[in-house]
Amino acid sequence: MRPGSGTVLVLALLAGLAAAGLARAQDAAPQACEVPSYLLSTESTLPKVAEAVKNARPLTVLVVGSRSSTILSSENSAYPARLQAALKEKLPSTPINLSVELHTGKTAEEVDAGLVKLVEAKRPTLVIWQTGTVDAMRSVDPDDFRGAVDEGVAALQNAGADVVLVNLQYSPRTETMISAPPYLDNMRVVAQQHNVPLFDRFAIMRHWNDAGDFDLFSTFHGTDMAKRVHACLGRALSKFVLDAARLDQAQQN
C-alpha cells in the first residue's frame, strides 16, 4: 500500500464511519428490549418459589448484589424494584416482599462471609445473587472466584433458599480494561453444578446493544438510559424467575 492510497483509504473509512454515526442518531427506536427466548429459558428449577406461590404464601426475595444492582440516587428505578413490580403484576394473589443487600466493592469471597447470617435474618424464599463484577475488576483468580461462588450457593441452598445467579453487565466501554469472560464461564459452571438458574445479564445486554435497543457505548451523562435498561432487566428477570419456577403457564391458564 502506497502512502497516497493509505490516505484515501483512511478518509473513505472516516466518511463511512461518520455516515453510520448520523444514521444511528436519527433512528431513536422505541424501547422494545425483546429478549430471545433461549436467553430466558433454563433447565434448572426454583421449587421453593413454586411451592410458596401455589400455597399462596408470601414470596420473600432477597437481592444480594454490588453497585450494578442499583442506580445511584434513584434506587426505585433499579432492576430489583422493577422485578418486584413485575412479580406483583403477574402474581396478584401473592404478597411479594423484596429487599436488596448491596455489598459495594466486595468480591464473591467477601460476600460469602455474611451470606448465611443474612439468610437467617431474612428467611428468603429466593436469593438473587448478582456477582462477578468486582472480582473481574480486581482480576481475582478465576478458580478462587469459582470456589467462592460455589460455597456461597451451597450455603444459600443449605439455608433453605432457592438461588438465581446474575452475572456481569455487558459494558463495552470498559471491555479493554475488564476481562469478563473467565468470570462469566465460571458462573455458568457453578450454576450447572448446583442446578441453579443463571440469569445471563451479560448476553441479554449485549443482545440489546447489537439489536439497537440500547446504545451501551453512549457517553450520555444522565440517569435516563440507566433507568430504561434497568426497567427492561427487571422485566426480563421476572419472566426468567417465573419460567424457572414453572409458574408462567400455570398463571396464564
Binding site: S66, R67, I71, L72, T133, R173, L216, T219
Partner: peptide, 25 residues
Amino acid sequence: IFLAEISYVATRFENPLYSEEMGIM
C-alpha cells in the same frame, strides 16, 4: 498509549449505568 486512552475515557464517560465498572479507572 493505553494510559492515554484510559485517561480520556475516564474523564469523558460517566454513564450512571456503569458507575461500578468505571471504578476500574
